[in-house]
Amino acid sequence: MDYYLSVATFGALNVILALGLNLISGFCGQVSLGHAAFYGLGAYAAALCSVAGLPFPVAVVAGMLVAGIFGIVVGIAALRVREDFLAIVTMGVGFLFLGVVRKQQWLGAEMGIAKIPSPLDKWGYALLAIGAAVALVLLSLHVRRSWMGRAFGAVAQDEDAARSIGIDVAGYKIAAFFIGTAAAGLAGGIYAHMTQIIVPDAFNFIQSITILAMVVIGGIGSTLGVVAGAVLLTLMPEMFRFINDYKLLVYGTLLLAVMRFSPEGVAGLVRRLARTAQARGGRRPA
């Protein structure tokens, strides 16, 4: 049972991470290759708070806020650079986070932070993570239908056109970065308390790409697709224990294959199948 609970918790954390990134990259069109840095910021901030003796809820909220505030900073930077320039800048943010944390003695350098107090049991973390993931799914679905979601879509499609019809492009970009990175920070805070030990390498470039993989394999921009992508990529290594040694080989090949054959991900595939089924259904005599 413990095993299933921890898989469920990690699945939920991945859903939170992927939906956060989807809000930035899918809804608002700002490609980010450094999402793991915000996961890490949340984890480190929450861990420091808990080690300092602050209560668990305060620590988790602090992790969220720290990640969100740095997200705003990157969002402001995203106003200066666009598209491919932005992709490389966000990749740089990831390397910068990692390179700085690795050298800080007060953050434990390469060894990270250990002995983080753990106030909940396995059930507690699972329920908390799943609850947060469900809340984020609902928020994500709501945002998509709201004025904000439509403004995000306009920014994603054509920034200049959006600006010309009076949409506050800068404001919406920063908002997307804040919500998305704060979600990553929340996941980081839960992760740090659950595992009770964090090391810099847990938040490296491969982790950023893994989160991006969940988004693109699920179908960038589609909330339910991204949830499916996150669950799929969480379960895959668990179901196929034997691929553990080849995990990155399989990840890489999967990323390549999805981009090459179905760039719209699982969501695109489902839509295509549904259309085909509908077309077939239409031809059948009533």
Binding site: V31, A87, I209, A213, L249, V250, Y251, G252, L255, L256
Partner: peptide
């Protein structure tokens, strides 16, 4: 981003 992600996929897979 499609080509970029595919390219990263090649890199990760081949590194392994």
């Amino acid at each position: 981003f499609v080509a970029l992600v595919a390219s990263i996929g090649v890199l990760i897979a081949m590194e392994d």
